[in-house]
């Protein structure tokens, strides 16, 4: 193997810059396996939630049907789904070696993610006012643990993408940075998919 060329000139820019190097290929496969583990993690969380979702200490403690408002959850879903789409745009421009557009769409992704996060925090504060807290019941514990873990993933994802935008600002795009961006976007899609399950299992099932 000859010396690796990271800054491939645009006329030879590969169709898949993210897997053009051996490290890139490893990252790609390794991250998918990590996501398999994350799936097992969230499966365990959903199972715990389903086991405890109706478990409260007394009659007066609110349950899912008393708390959840579908319109808000729907708006949150839209924020997150759209942010997944914008991250696809970023990857599209990465593959076309268009650094400025890639950064732009990554930025928009972060903004949408922040919007989601703000709504989630607002929602949690509302619930706490209704007496539904992490410590008030097993239902509360399970609810905040499931959504909190997802929310924590959102925070990590936002921090990660922001960091990539900043660190790559000077470096531009190369097959080395492309692998990093691609991995972050895989992560972001995964968070999105988990949310779809949360929307269905927690919110839709909760209000029905």
């Amino acid at each position: 193997m000859a010396h690796m060329e990271y800054n491939v000139p645009s006329e030879r820019w590969p169709a898949h810059p993210e897997t053009a190097t051996m490290e890139g290929k490893n990252k790609f496969v390794g991250f998918w396996i990590f996501l398999a583990g994350e799936t097992a993690l969230f499966a365990s969380l959903f199972a715990t939630y389903l086991a405890l979702k109706d478990s409260v200490p007394g009659e007066d403690h609110p349950l899912a049907a008393d708390l959840f408002a579908l319109p808000l959850a729907f708006v949150m879903t839209m924020f997150l789904l759209t942010s997944s789409l914008t991250s696809v745009y970023a990857i599209y421009h990465m593959r076309n070696n268009n650094f400025a557009k890639m950064q732009l769409w990554l930025g928009i992704t972060v903004l949408l993610g922040l919007g989601f996060l703000a709504l989630e925090i607002y929602e949690f504060i509302e619930y706490v006012h209704h007496g539904h807290t992490f410590r008030s019941s097993a239902f509360g514990s399970a609810f905040y643990f499931l959504l909190g873990t997802h929310g924590f993933h959102v925070v990590i994802g936002l921090g990660w993408i922001t960091l990539l935008i900043l660190r790559n600002a000077r470096r531009g795009i190369s097959v080395y940075t492309a692998a990093k961006v691609n991995t972050a976007s895989l992560y972001w899609h995964f968070i999105d998919v988990v949310w779809v399950f949360i929307f269905t299992i927690v919110y839709l099932l909760g209000v029905m």
């Binding site: 715990t48 086991a51 405890l52 478990s55 409260v56 200490p57 992490f134 410590r135 008030s136 019941s137 097993a138 239902f139 509360g140 514990s141 399970a142 643990f145």
Partner: peptide, 13 residues
């Protein structure tokens, strides 16, 4: 951290 997953009094299992 005070949650109640396993505390039967508050609905745990």
């Amino acid at each position: 951290f005070g949650s109640s997953f396993f505390l039967v009094e508050t609905g745990g299992n």
